[in-house]
Design a protein around this nucleic acid. Structure first.
Lengths: 181, 181
DNA sequence: GTGATCCCTGTCCGATCGGTCAGAACCGAC
DNA sequence: GTCGGTTCTGACCGATCGGACAGGGATCAC
């Protein structure tokens, strides 16, 4: 027995991500994760100090990328801000589909933020998507686009990945009234 | 004590809906609901045979309306189907904002369907939103529109209700490439 | 009065949860 | 060999979960 430490660690993260995405954070027990990864619950808690710690480690990468996108958006406005926000979000969302699903499932509970640096990022994203416009109609459209990208990336449409990416971006821009057509 | 039976029953439904929407189904215990409604857990279980029964009673109305919309869509296609699906969905979604949030939170877990008559309604909605087109791009756009409407209705934007409704419909139609502009 | 019925509750139950802990099993270094 | 450190586990713990159940009051008909 005794895999090379990091091996089981990664295996546990894999199992946890899949199970969290499928049954939610609350709906997945430590025992289930451990069994899926082929070890004991006690072994899981040797690698991770708590259930929350697993979540944090899972969501840290997407948190980092989100923060980067956030930073890129700060000094943009108008169409530039909207287009950058759309393409940036779609890219991140499609790269972290299951993570985003877990994040979405976890957000409503105002738990002590498992992933740092993304507090209020949703408001800033909506602001950028709206092209910094204070028009409430633009804000609603921005929310529609954001929600659409979120849900669509989390769902698994049986569609070619590149086509999905392109059409998500085109759709979102149409939603915002900034479509080229 | 001893309220008129139906009074406590309704009070419990109120509390449950609010708490389910706020903390999720799993994240809300029977004790919490009972305390919020000002009675004992045993009393709650006198009015409802189980936790699942509360969920069913909460989601039945929105299930009925969804089924009606579903029926109205069957013999429509093209722009008619898309427009009817958008306006119908927005109307239902805004009338049952918290219920929809609970439904969304509850869906991922493949629990024995608490609300009947809506199996596979999402696929049929996407089909209608896509105007019955088999084009995968239209299907992606349909999913974007559906997700946008879903999330936007569940979120609470501080926006005038009628403006919200109008702009959600306009945004969704733009997403589908059927905007008037 | 005395039942019968309805509403409500205190108390208990088994299951499951996240988490702890002492120690077994394995490892390379010596 | 054996020693020290790392990896892993069975057994256990307190808390909380959804739910069962017997009985206490209140209200009615008679």
């Amino acid at each position: 027995m005794a895999r090379s430490s990091t091996a089981l660690h990664g295996q546990l993260l894999d199992s946890a991500l899949r199970l969290f995405a499928q049954h939610g954070f609350r709906g997945t027990s430590l025992q289930t994760i451990a069994s899926d990864a082929g070890c004991s619950k006690a072994s899981l808690l040797y690698h991770f100090s708590s259930k929350e710690a697993i979540l944090t480690e899972l969501l840290t990468p997407v948190g980092r990328e989100a923060a980067e996108l956030d930073a890129r958006l700060t000094d943009l406005d108008g169409t530039d801000a909207a287009v950058t926000a759309v393409t940036g979000f779609v890219d991140v969302a499609l790269r972290f589909r299951r993570e985003l699903k877990v994040l979405f499932d976890t957000l409503p509970e105002s738990r002590p933020m498992a992933v740092s640096g993304i507090e209020g990022i949703d408001d800033r994203l909506v602001d950028a998507l709206a092209g910094r416009s204070p028009d409430p109609r633009q804000r609603v459209a921005a929310y529609m686009a954001l929600g659409g990208m979120f849900v669509t990336s989390a769902a698994d449409l049986h569609v070619n990945e590149e086509l999905l990416r392109e059409e998500m971006i085109r759709s979102a821009l149409r939603t915002l009234g900034r479509g080229s057509d």
